[in-house]
């Protein structure tokens, strides 16, 4: 049997069995694409230089996330770029400089090597762009029907500079709420890309790294109170987290929310709310009011913050709640998203 693989080769159980087929897959796909001295050494663990880490700050930030998405490839990214940017952003919104990632693949038997290569290339490109290195990894293959094509887990390590302290508990009445860009692009893109709703629009996921923007923000305003990336559950979920952690109500202003026409169209047709849609390259920050305008100006200079806007404020009401002031002057409560987004006809 030949062990060489090309893009049309289908992954089989042999590619996860620890033998020569697996070796071949790892070398041909993962190491070839990723490169990097740590991976090339092929040891069982990455070895990180502590002196170098210490020189960058006084705390390590460490995070993990697993990525499952249907479809695996979508306008603006794939599960690979998502798995890098998602973990980079989880580090970034803690104020950390992201440095190293691990990646673990669970692959369902039967997918083409070509797809896997595209995913790994997506990871590589995203890592290059974010300036992080994939230093260790793992692959497992599961029998057909026991997985959903590809699952990826990434863990990330970053360093937080001395003096940077972002905590949702620090939100104070009067603080402004800033979002770094348009809302719901990723969620709407995925709904469209699944194809079963047969919607067509020029949508693209906002999947991108945010640590550059975060570093710029911290340089402009070291007093930023809290920051989260608004992934699953959208900014609705993030604001509920802020409200719960700080004990203060949050208020958004509907007319200040940046929503692209295409995302709005998807929401109108399906009866959904962009505030509940996932984002993969958007952060929400709570900042002292006196710095908000200056911070907004510098955020808009950064490619990841061009459409940033001040969207609301922390209220002097000691109750964990999120309100939306409508353009008409009315108020409504923004519910925590329910879980699965169900399109409505009524």
């Amino acid at each position: 049997m030949t062990l060489s693989i090309n893009d049309h080769t289908l992954i089989t159980m042999a590619h996860g069995a620890g033998g020569r087929a697996m070796r071949c897959l790892i070398e041909e796909v993962f190491i070839n694409v990723f490169g990097g001295e740590q991976l090339l050494r092929m040891e069982d663990q990455a070895r990180l230089d502590m002196a170098q880490l210490s020189s960058l700050g006084d705390r390590l930030a460490y995070t993990t996330d697993s990525y499952v998405i249907d479809p695996l490839e979508f306008p603006g990214g794939n599960i690979g770029s998502l798995a890098v940017n998602g973990t980079v952003n989880d580090l970034a919104v803690g104020g950390a400089r992201p440095l190293y990632l691990s990646c673990a693949f669970i692959i369902e038997e039967g997918i083409e090597v070509g797809l896997l290569r595209r995913i790994v290339e997506g990871m590589r490109d995203a890592a290059l762009r974010a300036g992080v290195t994939v230093v260790t990894g793992d692959t497992k293959v599961v029998p057909r029907g026991k997985g959903d094509k590809v699952f990826i887990n990434t863990s990330g390590i970053g360093v937080i500079e001395h003096g940077v302290n972002l905590h949702a508990t620090q939100c104070q009445p009067g603080d402004k709420i800033i979002v770094s860009g348009s809302l719901g692009d990723h969620g709407a893109t995925i709904l469209q890309a699944r194809g079963d709703l047969a919607l067509e629009a020029d949508l693209q996921s906002d999947c991108q790294p945010l640590h550059g923007l975060v570093q710029l923000m911290l340089a402009e305003c070291p007093d930023i109170r809290a920051m989260r990336d608004a992934t699953r559950g959208g900014i609705a979920a993030v604001l509920h987290e802020f409200a719960t952690a700080s004990g203060f109500a949050m208020r958004l202003h509907e007319e200040m929310l940046p929503v692209k026409p295409e995302v709005r169209g998807v929401c109108e047709i399906l009866g959904l709310d962009a505030l509940h849609f996932a984002n993969e390259g958007r952060l929400v920050a709570v900042v002292p009011a006196k710095h908000a305008e200056a911070l907004l100006r510098s955020m808009r200079q950064h490619p990841a913050g061009q459409d940033a806007n001040i969207i609301g404020e922390v209220l002097d009401k000691a109750v964990a709640r999120v309100q939306v002031a409508t353009a008409l002057g009315g108020e409504r409560l923004l519910e925590m998203p329910d879980g699965e987004l169900l399109p409505r006809i009524c």
């Binding site: 047969a198 629009a201 026409p261 295409e262 169209g265 109108e268 047709i269």
Partner: peptide
């Protein structure tokens, strides 16, 4: 038909 830049049959 187009609804806010989104098209559908």
């Amino acid at each position: 038909v187009e609804v806010s830049s989104v098209r559908r049959r």
